[in-house]
């Protein structure tokens, strides 16, 4: 896709606005709080710093199958998202992601039913 200068400028603006709004709309920062200069496993810190989140994740299938933090949250760089974008679920759950377009799913996200990190199946 080729962009002229005006188009590119518009996109920058949209990006900045969208990011700003995302930050404003969230209680927590959208950026990862710490610079990860050292190449560690996320778990090395999060097991201690966010023990509840770690335990919920570890106990569920995602934890057992090693579907680790980066899959849903992105890297610790500028694509880090505190609240996962559901397109990230597509790799393994393509049909379910597609079903979010259905009228019955209006106003819902994956996490409306599947509690974050524990991601328990329906009815549990």
């Amino acid at each position: 896709m080729k962009l002229n200068r005006l188009g590119f400028g518009m996109l920058l603006l949209v990006a900045a606005l969208a990011l700003g709004t995302a930050l404003a709309g969230s209680q927590e920062p959208a950026k990862h709080r710490f610079k990860m200069g050292k190449k560690k496993d996320c778990i090395a810190c999060h097991e201690k710093r966010t023990p509840k989140v770690f335990k919920e994740w570890f106990a569920c299938d995602h934890g057992l199958f090693n579907v680790k933090c980066a899959v849903c949250h992105g890297s610790v760089g500028d694509d880090f998202t505190l609240e996962p974008v559901i397109a990230r679920c597509t790799g393994c759950h393509a049909d379910q992601v597609a079903s979010m377009e259905l009228p019955t799913m209006k106003g819902k996200t994956c996490f409306t039913c599947h509690a974050a990190h524990a991601l328990s199946p329906h009815g549990m």
């Binding site: 996109l11 920058l12 949209v14 990006a15 900045a16 606005l17 969208a18 990011l19 709004t21 995302a22 709309g25 969230s26 959208a30 992105g74 890297s75 760089g77 500028d78 694509d79 998202t81 609240e83 996962p84 974008v85 559901i86 397109a87 990230r88 996200t109 996490f111």
Partner: peptide
């Protein structure tokens, strides 16, 4: 959720990243 998505889309259009 929508805001996160919008921000991500905008970044993608900038050729930024990944997700």
């Amino acid at each position: 959720f929508l805001f996160t998505t919008a921000a991500a889309s905008a970044l993608a259009a900038l050729g930024k990243p990944t997700l």
